[in-house]
Amino acid sequence: DVEPGKFYKGVVTRIEKYGAFINLNEQVRGLLRPRDMISLRAENLNVGDEIIVQAIDVRPEKREIDFKYIP
């Protein structure tokens, strides 16, 4: 289970104008929005990159997770 405030290692699987999709594993995926990329620009991300993200909002009923990148 993903808990708000905890840090996780994930892999960038898709990049859109509104953010990057980060997979923690095959069943868990969330969104890293540009406003939550402190000191990281979306254009510096590539599909396949491994990054550490913090879960900031977890909505299990919608199967949605928002992440924040903190260097």
Rank of each mutant, 00 (worst) to 15 (best):
Q54Y: 11
Q54S: 03
E26Q: 12
E50C: 15
D1F: 15
E64C: 11
I38V: 13
R59N: 07
E3Q: 14
I38E: 12
D57N: 15
E64D: 04
Q54E: 05
I70D: 11
N25S: 14
Y69N: 03
G10W: 14
K68W: 06
K6W: 05
R35P: 06
G30S: 11
V47H: 01
G5T: 03
E64L: 13
K6P: 03
R14V: 06
L40N: 07
F67W: 08
V53L: 07
V47N: 01
V28W: 15
I70V: 14
N23H: 12
K6L: 07
E43P: 08
E64F: 13
P60I: 11
R33A: 07
D49E: 06
Q54R: 04
M37A: 06
A20H: 03
L40Y: 04
E16I: 07
N44G: 13
Y69P: 03
I22A: 01
N25F: 09
V28K: 02
L31C: 09
G48N: 02
G10M: 05
V47L: 10
K9P: 03
R14P: 01
N23I: 10
D66G: 06
I52K: 03
R63K: 14
I65A: 04
R33Q: 06
N25M: 07
Y69V: 07
G10P: 00
E26F: 14
I65T: 03
Y69F: 11
M37E: 04
Y8L: 02
Q27Y: 14
N44R: 10
P4H: 07
R33P: 05
Y18C: 09
P71D: 12
K6A: 07
L24K: 00
L40M: 11
E26A: 15
Y18H: 07
I56C: 09
D36G: 07
D66K: 11
I65F: 07
I52C: 15
I38K: 11
R33F: 05
A20R: 00
D49G: 02
R33Y: 06
E16V: 13
T13S: 10
V2G: 02
R59E: 03
Y18A: 07
Y18S: 06
F21R: 01
G19K: 07
Y18P: 02
K17S: 13
R33S: 07
R14G: 07
V11E: 03
Y69M: 07
I15S: 01
E43F: 11
R63D: 09
V28M: 08
R59H: 05
V11Y: 10
I52M: 10
I56P: 01
R29H: 10
F67L: 09
L24Y: 01
F7H: 04
L31Q: 04
R59S: 05
V11I: 14
N46K: 15
E50G: 05
V53R: 00
K9L: 11
E50T: 15
V28P: 02
Y69R: 03
R29V: 14
G10Q: 00
D49C: 07
N23C: 14
P71V: 09
F7Q: 04
E26N: 13
R41P: 10
V12P: 00
F21E: 05
G30L: 06
N46W: 10
R63N: 14
N46L: 10
I65M: 04
A20E: 01
I70A: 09
R33K: 08
R29Q: 14
V47Y: 02
A42M: 15
Y18R: 07
I65V: 09
I38P: 10
R14Y: 05
A55I: 15
Y8R: 01
G19L: 09
N46M: 13
Y69L: 08
G30N: 02
G48Y: 02
V12K: 00
V2C: 06
K62V: 10
R14Q: 11
V2P: 05
R59L: 04
Q27P: 04
M37R: 03
R14W: 07
D1Q: 13
D36A: 05
D57T: 12
R59M: 04
N46S: 14
Q27T: 14
F21D: 01
R59A: 04
R35A: 12
S39F: 15
E16N: 14
I22G: 00
I52A: 02
L45T: 01
K68R: 15
E3K: 14
R59Q: 04
F7C: 13
V53E: 00
G5P: 02
V12C: 02
F21K: 01
P4W: 07
A20K: 01
A20C: 08
V12F: 01
I70H: 09
L24E: 01
R14A: 11
V28I: 14
D36F: 09
I22W: 01
P71H: 09
Y18I: 11
L40T: 08
F21S: 03
F21T: 08
A42F: 15
V2M: 05
T13F: 03
K6M: 09
S39G: 15
V47K: 03
K9R: 13
R29T: 13
V47M: 04
V12Q: 00
P34K: 15
P60S: 09
T13V: 11
G30K: 02
R33H: 07
M37K: 03
L24T: 01
V11M: 07
V58S: 06
E16P: 01
A42S: 12
